[in-house]
Amino acid sequence: MIINNLKLIREKKKISQSELAALLESSRQTINGIEKNKYNPSLQLALKIAYYLNTPLEDIFQWQ
């Protein structure tokens, strides 16, 4: 199971779900699903999230 700190990191950087979704060329619903652990992002999307949040991938997503 993958757990994530996306919501915590996103809020700390003062970025809304909609703003992050626009940067990622994704939907706000996708970001919401990832944050609620209802959806696991593809590797490509996970890497883009890490890039746009300027945060190491392993700080956002962790195996448990």
Rank of each mutant, 00 (worst) to 15 (best):
M1P: 11
M1L: 15
M1N: 05
M1E: 04
I2F: 10
I2R: 09
I2M: 10
I3R: 09
I3F: 10
N4C: 09
N4F: 06
N5R: 08
N5C: 13
L6T: 02
L6C: 10
L8A: 14
I9S: 01
R10P: 04
K12S: 14
K12C: 12
K13G: 05
K13W: 08
K14E: 09
K14A: 10
K14Q: 12
I15K: 04
I15R: 03
S16E: 04
S16R: 06
S16F: 04
Q17W: 05
S18H: 11
S18F: 10
S18M: 12
E19M: 11
E19C: 11
L20W: 02
A21T: 03
A21I: 04
L23I: 10
L23G: 09
L24G: 00
L24Q: 00
E25Q: 15
E25D: 14
S26P: 02
S26L: 15
S27T: 14
S27G: 06
S27R: 08
R28T: 15
R28E: 15
R28M: 13
Q29A: 14
T30G: 04
T30F: 14
T30Y: 15
I31S: 01
I31Q: 02
I31W: 00
I31Y: 01
N32W: 08
G33A: 15
G33Q: 15
I34T: 01
I34D: 02
K36S: 14
N37I: 03
N37Y: 06
Y39D: 05
Y39V: 14
Y39W: 12
N40V: 15
N40D: 09
P41C: 03
P41R: 02
S42E: 05
S42N: 09
L43W: 13
L43V: 10
L43S: 05
L43D: 03
L43F: 13
A46C: 08
L47Y: 09
K48W: 06
I49L: 05
I49M: 05
A50I: 05
A50Q: 03
Y51G: 07
Y51P: 00
Y51K: 09
Y52W: 11
T55F: 06
T55P: 01
P56C: 08
P56T: 07
L57C: 08
E58A: 12
E58G: 13
I60E: 00
I60L: 12
Q62C: 08
Q62P: 08
Q62N: 06
W63N: 03
W63R: 03
W63I: 05
W63D: 02
W63C: 06
